[in-house]
Amino acid sequence: MFDFLGSVLKNVISKPATRMYPYETREAMDKARGALGEIEIEKCIFCGICATKCPSIAIKVDKAERSWEFNRLKCIVCNVCVEVCPVKCLHMDKAHLGPLLAVEKTKRNGPPKPAPAAKAAESTN
């Protein structure tokens, strides 16, 4: 009947296994998928692959308007958009975000289309 007493006593004298969250937070793991980070819009070529591959239709890309729109509340943080991006302008943040108070859509407009010569110079970087 007292099989567990040893463990209980050990727990009484040892440090707690829990953390005083939110005063004390754990560093996110290196590979953690926390939240989709800010897009590097100047690199984006508006190909729309991220929007078609997204399983939860959270990304919307308008090629004509050169805009990239992201609905955080639809995002399931699966990392697919980051993996398929041909110019690697998306990246995943390690830390996850806190609660939102309102529906928030991130819309980013790219710079106007550069001249072909400038674009070629950019791609060599």
Partner: peptide
């Protein structure tokens, strides 16, 4: 769950 986060990036839905 910590080791799952370290290896795959998420604690439960490891994908």
């Amino acid at each position: 769950m910590d080791i799952m986060e370290a290896t795959s990036g998420a604690r439960v839905v490891v994908s």
